[in-house]
Deep mutational scan, measured.
Amino acid sequence: KELVLALYDYQEKSPREVTMKKGDILTLLNSTNKDWWKVEVNGRQGAVPAAYVKKL
């Protein structure tokens, strides 16, 4: 499985998103959308802005 690093804090704004903190390591589930990537963090799945994460 592919991992990404959170470059910034992000507070979810809808139920389809997830909150992450700078430095979090997230499991990347889907990166086909260039703006929003689906990730899993702390057992929750949701979208985060692609510009806020970097593939490891």
Results as ranks from 00 to 15, higher is better:
K1Q: 13
K1G: 11
K1Y: 14
E2G: 11
E2D: 11
L3F: 14
L3R: 10
L3P: 03
L3K: 11
L5T: 08
L5N: 01
A6W: 02
A6R: 00
L7N: 02
Y8K: 13
D9V: 02
D9R: 02
D9L: 02
Y10T: 00
Q11H: 13
Q11L: 13
E12G: 15
K13H: 09
S14I: 04
S14A: 08
S14G: 12
S14F: 06
S14Y: 06
P15V: 10
P15C: 11
R16Y: 14
R16L: 15
R16K: 13
E17S: 07
E17P: 05
V18Y: 04
T19A: 07
T19Y: 03
T19P: 06
M20I: 15
M20Y: 01
K21T: 09
K21Q: 10
K22H: 07
K22I: 06
G23I: 02
G23P: 01
D24P: 00
I25W: 05
I25Y: 06
I25H: 05
T27D: 06
L28Y: 02
L28K: 00
L28H: 01
L28Q: 00
L29Y: 04
N30E: 15
S31G: 12
S31E: 15
S31T: 11
T32Y: 10
N33S: 11
K34T: 11
D35R: 12
D35V: 13
W36V: 04
W36N: 02
W36D: 01
W36C: 07
W37E: 02
W37K: 00
W37F: 08
W37Q: 01
K38F: 15
K38R: 13
K38I: 15
V39K: 00
E40Q: 08
V41T: 11
N42L: 08
N42C: 12
N42P: 05
G43Y: 03
G46T: 04
A47R: 15
A47F: 15
A47H: 15
V48C: 04
V48Q: 00
P49E: 04
P49I: 04
A50K: 07
A50W: 00
A50H: 03
A51D: 14
A51P: 07
Y52D: 06
Y52A: 14
Y52C: 15
Y52R: 08
V53C: 14
V53N: 02
K54D: 09
L56G: 03
L56E: 04
